[in-house]
Amino acid sequence: MLGKDAAAFLCRNSGALVDAETPELLGDATRVTVPCGGRIDVLHLLKAVESGARTVVVVACHLDNCKSLSATDEAELRVARANALLVEAGSAARCAICRAAANAPADLRRALSEAIRPIGNRGSEAEEVTAA
């Protein structure tokens, strides 16, 4: 589903396990497995864009399913912050978060298409920016 020009940050307890079962969903995207969605920083997301990713996806746990309780909420805030910075820099929002449990490949498929739909086209048309 995703091409080489995509990066995916995968929570070890959800995204990474679904990806191991159904790797075709994230296709050729560059994968980075993190111990928890809460570990993802705005810097990581912008670094992915700077490295050429047109689409950056964070696959993290559902609300109330995070091993660190509220950490995936933080991840969502950081995705929003990264998008705000990209827009401020003249680019388009390219980051998205989708939530799926370790035992939900079908949910990941749906969540990915929903998350990427709003950023997919704009991402490819956006001018290149260099993250600060």
């Binding site: 560059t30 990581h44 670094k47 992915a48 490295s51 050429g52 047109r54």
Partner: peptide
């Protein structure tokens, strides 16, 4: 994390 991303999407 940064090393994994470095150059991964350049091509």
């Amino acid at each position: 994390i940064l090393a994994a991303l470095e150059g991964a999407n350049a091509g």
